[in-house]
Simulated scan of single mutants.
Amino acid sequence: MSANRIQFIEFNDEELFSEIKLDNHQAFEELYRRYFYRLLNDAYKRLHDRDQSEELVQELFVNLWSKRHQILLAKTFDAYFHTSLRNAVISFFRKNNKVAEYPADYTEQEAGQVTYEEITYNDLKTAYEQSVQELPEKCRHAYELFETGLSIQEIATETNVSPKTIESHLLKARNVIRQQLREYSLVCTSLFLTIFGQSLDLL
């Protein structure tokens, strides 16, 4: 476990969110780990559909990240997620003209499915990190600089190459990483790359 991960484990939710507002990916990942499976359980109780539940919860986190600078917490993060999930479920049923059912508990099989999802996420993160490391050196260097927030022009200036060359490196990185992660579910991969591989969706 990395030193940064240990550090953020000790943060409370509000402290994590303060870091997220500063665009800290690792703080977001820690908040994601704390709440994703709890929210997935709650969504599944109402939707009775694994894929739809996962998609709905993933969208909550995508919205959290994309609106991180505008969100003002009136209560706790647990209350924020509970309200967000409730509104998302209501919108889903209204859109699909369905009536919600609320099972009391999970079965043993469903609990096992959540464990499987956690393993899948960890595998995806490892695969992503490995795919980045396996990029050609110049391509990887450009990609890693872009992930720190530098623009194409800034990277070109720092590396003393043309912007078109940097753009070519980033496009190659996008294609290679997406290809290597193709075995994972589209929803899970899309969220992961939106948060932890932003450059892939900026070109």
Rank of each mutant, 00 (worst) to 15 (best):
E183Q: 13
K164Y: 11
L56T: 08
P136C: 04
T120V: 15
H69L: 12
Q113L: 13
Y106N: 11
D13F: 00
N41M: 15
S199Q: 11
F17W: 00
Y143L: 00
V132I: 04
L193R: 04
E29P: 06
E54H: 09
F8V: 08
A111Y: 14
S53H: 00
Q133D: 10
F92R: 06
K172D: 10
T157N: 09
D51C: 13
T194M: 10
V89L: 08
L31R: 08
Q153D: 06
T76D: 05
S18F: 10
N63D: 12
L73T: 01
M1E: 09
L56E: 00
T157V: 02
E154R: 02
L203W: 10
Y35P: 05
D13I: 04
R33D: 14
Q133E: 09
L56A: 08
L145H: 01
L47D: 02
E137Q: 12
N4A: 15
E137M: 11
T76M: 03
E154W: 00
Q180L: 09
E158W: 07
A79C: 03
A3R: 15
K172I: 11
L124V: 07
D123S: 12
T76S: 06
H169N: 07
Q180C: 02
E154I: 06
N24Q: 06
A100E: 02
E108S: 12
K164D: 13
S131R: 04
L85A: 01
V161K: 04
S84A: 13
P136R: 04
T148D: 00
Q58C: 15
S168T: 13
A79S: 10
L170K: 02
L124Q: 07
L40A: 09
F11R: 01
A100K: 09
R140W: 04
G149V: 02
K164P: 10
R94S: 13
A3K: 12
L22P: 11
E14F: 01
Q180A: 07
L72T: 15
D42N: 13
D23P: 07
I195T: 03
F92C: 07
Q7M: 14
E10C: 12
K125G: 12
H25D: 07
A173V: 06
T194P: 02
G149T: 04
N175K: 10
K21W: 09
Q179F: 07
Q198C: 11
R86F: 12
L31M: 07
L191V: 04
K75A: 15
T194E: 05
L60C: 05
F8G: 04
A74Q: 04
Y116K: 14
R34M: 03
V132D: 03
H141N: 02
F196V: 05
F61Q: 00
C188I: 12
N160P: 07
F11L: 07
F36T: 00
T126S: 13
D49Q: 06
S91E: 14
K95A: 11
P163Q: 01
A88C: 06
N96M: 07
F192D: 00
L124S: 06
S162E: 05
Y128E: 05
S91W: 08
Q113H: 14
L203C: 12
V132P: 10
Y37F: 14
D78W: 13
Y44D: 03
F11I: 05
R94F: 08
E118V: 09
E108F: 14
I177V: 03
V114A: 12
F81A: 06
